[in-house]
Design a protein around this nucleic acid. Sequence first.
DNA 1: TATTTTCCGTTGCAAAAGCAACACATTATG
DNA 2: CATAATGTGTTGCTTTTGCAACGGAAAATA
Lengths: 210, 210
Amino acid sequence: MNTNVDIENFILDFSNSCQKKQKKNFSKNEVVTTYIKNRNQLCILLDGHADLVRYDLNGNRTIVEHFSKNALFGEVFYTITTNNELLVEAKSNCTVLFYIYDDIFHKCRNNCKFHQNLSENLPQLILNKVTDLNMRIELLTQRSTRDKLLRYFSLLSTRNLSKTFELPFSLTDLADYLSVDRSAMMRELKLLKEDGLIEKVGNRIILLYK
Amino acid sequence: MNTNVDIENFILDFSNSCQKKQKKNFSKNEVVTTYIKNRNQLCILLDGHADLVRYDLNGNRTIVEHFSKNALFGEVFYTITTNNELLVEAKSNCTVLFYIYDDIFHKCRNNCKFHQNLSENLPQLILNKVTDLNMRIELLTQRSTRDKLLRYFSLLSTRNLSKTFELPFSLTDLADYLSVDRSAMMRELKLLKEDGLIEKVGNRIILLYK
DNA sequence: TATTTTCCGTTGCAAAAGCAACACATTATG
DNA sequence: CATAATGTGTTGCTTTTGCAACGGAAAATA
């Protein structure tokens, strides 16, 4: 079921017709939003790339999610239970729509075209998010750094329909995304190269197995 | 926004009125379903507890998700990209509704009460799942076994509104849920006790800090 | 109730991952 | 363009984790 076209149109409608929204642009490295208890914000990334980042008390930085076009984020999706900072950082110039989730559903009682579109399309958008999160969990449940790398590469390879692909992260960020120590990850990358499983040219990875 | 009552009613409606469904009972340890490519099944757990379990090629068992009342699962939420076995195992007697996702949305073009309810309530149900998955990711991104345990305990404590709570897992299963070695986890549990951070009486944990 | 199976708790040893530090390359920025 | 900031690649050492194995407790089952 390819719903991409539907979703494109829906988001356009959404971004043009809803009153209770804000549309903002951000440049690279700007903070798009910080997660705040009880605010219940819902955001749609119209364009660009951004990361949800957590800074914990040990000083570790974790990239919790990586967002690209049409990704959803905001407190609606996240029950905040710690004092860890959670922020969304723009990784490129990007455009974001902001809503308060409760508004959307209160207005849903009216029968306007916009809200009809909304209730038809939001499930699919959220569903995409769920599958993303499940892929993320599959990554994180790999027991070793090596397996995390291989799983991640295999995912990118599938997504690109090619054994060759660009990393969407710097290596430093990749470590924060896999939730491992950077130097340990570099060591493992070297081993993967030595074992002839991958090649790495700059930002480009080539899978050599299977 | 408390939507629990709505969702209860919706699920009742759902389970009584939809033609293209199956309702089945399972007893403890039975396999509820196996994830199969391109089937696109959607399941609702009406009652009981069940786990989504992955067996990987290294022989590791991972509890990917833990489901309780009203949880959603099935291939709709999961893009299968490996040959790892993914199965849902009943952890107690349970009742499950089975649908094929595509059917649900094709029928949505009609205006029957059931599908109106569906499109109103499914987003909220899925949203609950998203927040669950995000909590899961927060757990898995903890860098050490110790932090995973503490984070998990803190979650259960918040959920129970008490520093004392029952583990919903056997210790063996808990290790598979945190994606760590069981013996290493036991060692860490012992250290937590020795450091005076927790007490453990049978299946019951008592948090001693803060 | 007897017996098999699963789970708990522990340990020694090996392997993996984290930490800290550094040099060098690359990329931003005044 | 000069300089600062950030990212890459590497290494020695320490700590954590995983593995294998075992005995006993508890639970399921015949």
